[in-house]
Structures are given as C-alpha cells and as structure tokens.
C-alpha cells in the first residue's frame, strides 16, 4: 500500500510540473504579448492625449530664440565636421529645448514607426531600459542622446515575448526609414547598414559616434545625429545582440502631417 501511495504521489507531481510548464509557455507566448500590446496602445493613446492637451508648436518660436546661441554653435561644429544634410532646424530647436524637459524614467515620450516591420507597426518609446519599461514598449538608453539630438539616440526592444516588437529585426536593410515623432516634430532616420551581430558587452555601439568592437563594422566616421536600435540574438537566446544604425535624414513639423516614408 505504501508503494502505491509513493507512485501515485510521484505521478501527480510529474503531471503538476508538466501543467506548470505548459502554463508558463502559454504565459510567455500569448499572455505577455496581449499585455504588452494593450500597454503599448495605452502609452500611445496617452501620448496623443498629452500632445493634444498641450500643443507645443505655439511655443516653438520662443524656444528658437532661446536656442539661438547653441544652434549657431552647432552649425559651426557641423561645418567643421564637413557634414551636411537636411537634418536642420527642428532638430536644433529640439536640442535647444532639451534642457527644459528631461525625459522622465519609465515615461513614454515618442512613437516609433518602422514600415519594414509592417504598415501598422508602431511602438511607444519610453525612457530607460529597465525590465518594467521594456514590458510596455521600447526603451531609450538613458545616457544616450535625445531624439533628433546631436549624438546617438539609442533604443532597445524585445525580440521575442512582450509583443515581439523587434521580431523582424534581421530584415532591416540599408535605406529603410525609421520614423519617430515626439508630437512636435517628425524625425526620419535611415538605416545605413544591415544589422550587425555582436556580443552583449560591446557597449561602444552606443557611443555618440558608434564604435563597435569590430572596427570594420563602424557605420560612421564623424559626429552626427544617429540612431541605434538593439535587440537580442538568436531570437530566443541571449548570447548575442543585433544592432542597427541609422542617420537622421529629415525633420518635419508635426503640423505638416506625417512624412512620406509612412504614406508610401
């Protein structure tokens, strides 16, 4: 009788463990996705509400005046770097306003669109790359440049689970637009290289001028306004990271409607 009880107990334990594992997989594959999608939609809705409640276009002129000195300096700087491009006025205006509204930890401040990932692919960008933040959208590396600012605007996102935002990351190709808006301005970055695969400790990829361990993979030679996207690789693993770089190609006031890259 005692043997029978032991066998029964063990069997029940195994069945329980099996059910637990199945439930955990369901949680990972479906539940986190459902939760993350609704959290992302909430963040985007909240952003749109905030932008609608406090239209910042009206204050642009005043800010431009205040930002006059730094932007002149930036222009000279750019002249020295020999860099030209349409990434002009709005970006500098933003840079001038940067000190006034620091991004708040865990708060969303922009929406990202990547047409390569699908017409209706849009995700909120939140400040910080903490665990809780990345469950609600993409995370901006706190120590990197601001959106549209001089330097490197770096963003991390989940490849799998929590809505799979960067599932199609390896499909990014040079020339792909990555469009962001902060409610004030549309920023169109253009991917310059195929995704670069590296090790998790390769923090140089986030530098103002990205400096990956593999020197040959360095996408830029001089300072500029850059974008870095990071996610994990392989899809379900964590041994490596995938990195994509872009450069700011165009800015456009939000009042003029969404840029061409989104309507094509």
């Amino acid at each position: 009788m005692a043997l029978r009880a032991v066998v029964r107990g063990l069997s029940e334990l195994c069945i329980t463990a099996g059910i637990l594992i199945v439930l955990f997989v369901v949680h990972l594959l479906y539940w986190t996705g459902l939760r993350a999608d609704s959290a992302s939609d909430n963040e985007i809705d909240r952003l749109h509400e905030r932008w609608a409640a406090a239209p910042r276009d009206g204050s642009a002129a005043a800010d431009e005046g205040r930002a006059g000195a730094p932007s002149r300096r930036e222009r000279e700087q750019r002249g020295r770097d020999g860099e030209t491009g349409p990434a002009g006025g709005a970006g500098e205006r933003r840079a001038g306003r940067a000190q006034q509204q620091p991004y708040r930890d865990g708060r969303s401040f922009a929406v990202m669109y990547i047409p390569r990932f699908g017409r209706d692919w849009s995700k909120p960008v939140l400040e910080s790359t903490g665990e809780q933040t990345l469950r609600r959208g993409l995370g901006h590396y706190t120590r990197t440049a601001r959106l549209g600012g001089k330097g490197n605007f770096a963003v991390a996102g989940h490849r799998r689970t929590y809505g799979d935002p960067f599932k199609d990351f390896p499909r990014l190709r040079p020339g792909d637009p990555v469009v962001l808006t902060d409610g004030d301005t549309w920023y169109t970055y253009t991917i310059v290289k195929r995704p670069y695969r590296t090790l998790p400790g390769d923090t140089g990829v986030l530098d103002a001028v990205p400096a990956p361990v593999n020197k040959a993979a360095a996408p830029f030679t001089g300072p500029g306004r850059y974008l870095t996207l990071t996610t994990c690789d392989p899809e379900w693993g964590s041994s490596h990271r995938l990195i994509a770089w872009g450069r700011l190609d165009a800015t456009r006031p939000a009042s003029e409607g969404s840029p061409g890259a989104l309507t094509r």
Binding site: F166, P200, L206, G237, S238
Partner: peptide
Amino acid sequence: LPFNDVTVDG
C-alpha cells in the same frame, strides 16, 4: 530566462 536580454551593457 534569456528573452529579456535585449540591451547592450557592460
């Protein structure tokens, strides 16, 4: 589990 490791950090 490893699915969370999406950032580059020393």
